[in-house]
């Protein structure tokens, strides 16, 4: 099912029987997954399915998981955090230190990844310019619009030229033209052999850019394959329909019509 450029190669990410719960509430109930170089993984699922949790475990942001998570062939719980140097991360909520200027923030992040200050600055400034943000490079992020913040986050995740990218809803707030640019960027990065782990609720985008789609539901992977493969399996036409189908959600029409009937009451 999985075909990669290099044929039979070592997985970049390898997850075995991953379980996680918050208190008594189970979030992940046994995830098995191998991700190879150059894949763009669309990681989708309903709210609360465990998408963000999986990503956060891989980044070491949440503790207490069971099972094995290997990145670049090393178990991440062995205490060595060097693997993070090769990872870029865009979190779901646009969390950044927004009282800093874009320059201060980006250079700081670059330095956290071990870049020299001057190099980080030079790189960040040119990347900002490519997004049309050179004029606000020295302005505080708190004055930015949602789309501008998202661009800063994207840049901050790429400054150190990572091998794996974890993007949680990376297109939120971007206008259509910027979305085009980012999609191109992602495709080009993947072609260069970078692995992109992409979660989103916007099915059209996932459908178009992912080379492999993982559907998570109730803490389990319920579908895994390219869009074409999923379409063949489920006999549905769009990813949206596949999503509805596999998450067992068929009553959207009923919900919508009863919603509208409540709206009609005045």
């Amino acid at each position: 099912m999985i075909e990669t450029a290099g044929g039979r190669q070592e997985p970049v990410i390898s997850i075995r029987n991953l379980e996680m719960s918050y208190g008594s509430k189970p979030i992940l109930q046994g995830i098995d997954l191998d991700v190879y170089q150059g894949q763009i993984i669309g990681y989708i699922g309903p709210n609360g399915a465990g998408k963000s949790t999986t990503v956060k475990i891989m980044l070491g942001l949440v503790e207490g998981h069971q099972g094995e998570v290997k990145i670049f062939g090393r178990d991440i719980s062995d205490g060595d955090i060097e693997y993070k140097r090769r990872i870029g991360y865009v979190p779901e909520v646009a969390e950044l230190y927004d009282s800093l200027t874009a320059q201060e923030y980006l250079v700081f992040i670059g330095e956290l990844y071990g870049l020299p200050q001057r190099k980080a600055d030079h790189k960040a400034r040119r990347l900002m310019a490519k997004f049309g943000l050179e004029e606000v490079y020295f302005d505080r992020i708190s004055s930015y619009s949602k789309g501008m913040r998202q661009k800063v986050l994207l840049i901050s995740s790429l400054l150190h030229n990572p091998d794996i990218l974890f993007l949680d809803e990376p297109l939120s707030g971007l206008d259509a033209n910027s979305v085009m640019i980012v999609k191109e960027i992602l495709a080009a990065l993947a072609a260069e052999g970078k692995t992109i782990f992409y979660s989103s609720h916007i099915m059209d985008v996932v459908e178009k850019i992912s080379s492999r789609i993982l559907l998570l539901n109730g803490g389990r992977i319920v579908a895994d394959g390219s869009f074409e493969e999923l379409r063949e399996q489920s006999h549905e036409r769009s990813l949206e329909q596949i999503f509805n189908d596999l998450t067992g959600f068929h009553e959207y029409k009923d919900v919508a019509s009863s919603f509208v009937s409540i709206v009609r009451e005045v």
């Binding site: 942001l61 993070k84 991360y89 979190p91």
Partner: peptide, 14 residues
Amino acid sequence: DVRDRNILFSKPVQ
């Protein structure tokens, strides 16, 4: 500061 979590912990810093 909860932002520390996402911003700092995801970086290769002990």
